[in-house]
C-alpha cells in the first residue's frame, strides 16, 4: 500500500495527475534527480522534500528560490506539518498530499436515479408531451385569432414552437453528451415541453387575475417573479440531466441566471421609465364576463378618486427635475 499520494494541480486549478510513493523522503523539484519531477519554471531544481513524522508528513524547503507556502497562506515557511488532505504551493503548482485511506465521495450515477426522469425519458411519454404542447399552441392561436384561419396556418405557429423546443433540447443533449457521455435527448425535450405547457396554462388561467387587477406594476412584478421561478426550475431540470453537479450548485446556477434576467428587465424598465412617451400606457386586459358583477364605484366616486392622478403627475414632475 502506498504511503503517500500526491495530487498535482496546475496554476489554472486543473488536476494534472496522481503520483504514489512508497518510501520517504520524497524529493520534489525541476531537476531530473528528484522523485517527483515538476514541469513549472517557478519551481527550483531541488525545491523541497517530504519526510514522515509521527502525526503525518513534514514538507521542508530546500533553500528554493520562490519558497514554500501552505496553500491559501501568504507567507513562505521553511517547514510545514501536514495531514492527509493538506495542500502546499510551490512556484505556481499546488500539491495535495493524501494517504491511501483518504475518503472519497460516493460515485455519481450516470442514469439519474429519480423515477421521474426515467419516465419522461421514455419515447412514448416524450411524444405525448410534445403532442400536448402542439395541440395547446394550436388552441391558443385559435383563441387569439379574430379570423377563421385554416388548420394549416394555426399548425404553422405550433410547428415553429416545436422546432424551437427541439433545438433547445438538442443543445442540452449536446451538453449532456460532453459531460455525462449520455444525451438524454428525450428527457430534455419532454422537460422543455412540460415547461412550455405549464407556462401556457399559467398564462391563460391568470388572465382573469390580470383582468381584475388594474395595476400595471403589480401585474408586471408578479409575472416577472412567477416566470423567474419557473425558468429557474426549468434550468435545474436540464442541469440534473446534463451534468453531475450537486443540487445546491444547480439551484445557485439556475437561480442566478433567472435573477440576472429579472434584473436586466428591471434595469431596462428604470432606464426607459423617464424617457418621453407620447402614448398613454395603461393595463388593458379584457376578459369575457362569465361571472357578472356590479362594481360599487359610481361615476362620482371615480372622478373624486382620479385626483390621485394629478398628485402622481406632480410627483413625476418633481422626480424629473432631479
Amino acid at each position: 500500500m502506498a504511503k503517500i499520494i500526491i495530487e498535482i494541480i496546475n496554476h489554472q486549478g486543473v488536476l494534472q495527475e496522481y503520483r504514489t510513493f512508497d518510501s520517504f523522503p520524497v524529493r520534489i523539484g525541476r531537476g531530473y534527480q528528484n522523485d517527483l519531477i515538476l514541469y513549472d519554471p517557478y519551481v527550483s531544481q531541488e525545491h523541497l522534500k517530504i519526510v514522515e513524522d509521527h502525526a503525518g508528513w513534514v514538507a521542508q524547503d530546500l533553500n528554493s528560490k520562490n519558497g514554500l507556502y501552505l496553500y491559501g497562506h501568504p507567507k513562505t515557511l521553511p517547514e510545514i506539518h501536514l495531514a492527509s488532505g493538506g495542500e502546499i504551493l510551490i512556484g505556481k503548482t499546488r500539491l495535495r498530499l493524501l494517504s491511501s485511506l483518504h475518503p472519497v465521495p460516493s460515485a455519481v450515477s450516470i442514469s439519474t436515479n429519480s423515477k421521474f426522469w426515467e419516465r419522461i425519458d421514455a419515447l412514448p411519454n416524450m411524444m405525448g408531451l410534445v403532442l400536448i404542447l402542439f395541440l395547446l399552441v394550436v388552441l391558443q392561436s385559435y383563441f387569439d385569432s379574430i379570423k377563421n384561419l385554416s388548420l394549416g396556418k394555426l399548425a404553422s405557429v405550433a410547428v415553429g414552437v416545436i422546432v424551437t423546443v427541439v433545438i433547445w433540447a438538442g443543445s442540452w443533449a449536446f451538453v449532456g453528451r460532453l459531460i455525462k457521455h449520455r444525451t438524454f435527448f428525450c428527457a430534455q425535450l419532454s422537460w422543455i415541453s412540460l415547461y412550455y405547457v405549464a407556462s401556457i396554462i399559467l398564462f391563460e388561467f391568470s388572465s382573469y387575475i390580470r383582468f381584475f387587477t388594474c395595476d400595471h406594476m403589480i401585474v408586471i412584478t408578479a409575472t416577472l417573479i412567477l416566470f423567474g421561478v419557473l425558468f429557474a426550475v426549468l434550468l435545474m431540470g436540464h442541469l440534473t440531466m446534463a451534468t453531475a453537479i450537486s443540487l445546491r450548485k444547480q439551484m445557485a446556477a439556475s437561480g442566478m441566471i433567472s435573477l440576472v434576467i429579472i434584473l436586466i428587465s428591471l434595469q431596462f424598465h428604470f432606464v426607459i421609465k423617464n424617457e418621453f412617451n407620447p402614448v398613454p400606457e395603461f393595463y388593458s386586459k379584457l376578459c369575457p364576463p362569465f361571472i357578472k358583477f356590479k362594481p360599487a364605484r359610481s361615476i362620482d366616486k371615480f372622478i373624486d378618486d382620479s385626483k390621485g392622478l394629478f398628485v402622481a403627475l406632480e410627483k413625476r414632475k418633481q422626480e424629473e427635475k432631479f
Binding site: C214, D215, H216, N274, F276, N277, V279, P280, E281, F282, Y283, S284, L286, P289, K292, F293, K294, P295, A296, R297, S298, I299, F302, D305, S306, G308, L309, F310, A312, L313, R316, K317, E320
Partner: peptide, 23 residues
C-alpha cells in the same frame, strides 16, 4: 410630462365598465 394612468372598474348606466383615465 409623460402620461400617468389609472384603470378602474366603474358602474356606468348600471353596467360594468373598465375605465382607464390618463393625464
Amino acid at each position: 410630462t409623460n402620461f400617468e394612468c389609472e384603470t378602474k372598474f366603474v358602474n356606468v348606466a348600471d353596467k360594468n365598465w373598465k375605465v382607464a383615465f390618463c393625464s
